[in-house]
Simulated scan of single mutants.
Amino acid sequence: MKKVLSLLIVLAFVMMVTFAAVPAAAQNTRVGIVLSTGGLGDLSFNDSAYRGLQRAERELGIDFQYIEPSDPSEDETALRRFANRGFDLIIGVGFQMSDTLETVSYDYPNVKFSHIDQDFGEDIPDNIVSLNFAEWEGSFLAGALAALVSDTNVVGYVGGVDSALIQRFEGGFYQGAKYINPDIEVERRYADSFGDPARGREIALGMIDDGADVIYHAAGGTGSGVFQAAGEEDIYAIGVDSNQNYVEPGHVIASMVKKVDNAVFNIAKAVDEGTYEGGENLYFTLEDGGVMLTSLTEIEQPVLDAHKNGTIDDQDLETIKEMKAEVTSPYAERINEIKEKIINGEIEVENWGITGRPEALE
Rank of each mutant, 00 (worst) to 15 (best):
K2I: 14
V10A: 14
T18C: 06
V22N: 05
P23E: 05
P23A: 07
N28I: 03
G32F: 05
V34N: 04
L35N: 10
S36P: 08
G38L: 08
G41W: 15
L43W: 01
R51A: 13
E57K: 15
R58D: 14
R58W: 09
E59C: 10
E68H: 13
P69Y: 14
D71N: 15
S73P: 01
E76M: 05
L79D: 02
R81Y: 15
N84R: 12
F87I: 01
L89C: 09
T103D: 14
P109T: 08
V111I: 11
E122K: 12
P125H: 14
D126G: 10
D126N: 11
F133Y: 13
G138L: 04
S139L: 09
L141W: 06
L145H: 12
L145E: 08
A146K: 13
V149I: 15
T152L: 03
N153T: 05
V155E: 01
V155C: 04
G159R: 00
G159V: 00
V161M: 14
E170Q: 15
G176M: 08
Y179G: 14
Y179F: 11
N181D: 13
N181S: 06
N181F: 01
P182Y: 03
D183K: 04
D183S: 08
E187S: 02
D192M: 12
D196L: 12
A198F: 15
M207N: 08
I208E: 03
I208F: 04
G223R: 02
A229K: 02
G231L: 01
G231P: 00
I235S: 04
I238N: 02
V240W: 00
V240I: 12
P249A: 03
D261W: 08
N266K: 13
A268M: 06
A268S: 10
T275F: 04
Y276N: 10
Y276R: 06
G279Q: 05
N281K: 01
F284A: 12
T285H: 10
E287K: 12
E298N: 15
E300I: 06
Q301M: 07
V303A: 08
I312Y: 02
D313K: 09
D313H: 09
Q315W: 14
L317K: 07
L317H: 11
I320S: 09
K321A: 13
M323V: 00
Y331E: 04
A332C: 11
I338N: 08
E340K: 13
K341T: 05
K341I: 03
G345C: 06
E348T: 14
E348V: 14
W352K: 00
T355S: 15
T355E: 08
G356D: 02
E359V: 07
A360N: 11
A360Y: 08
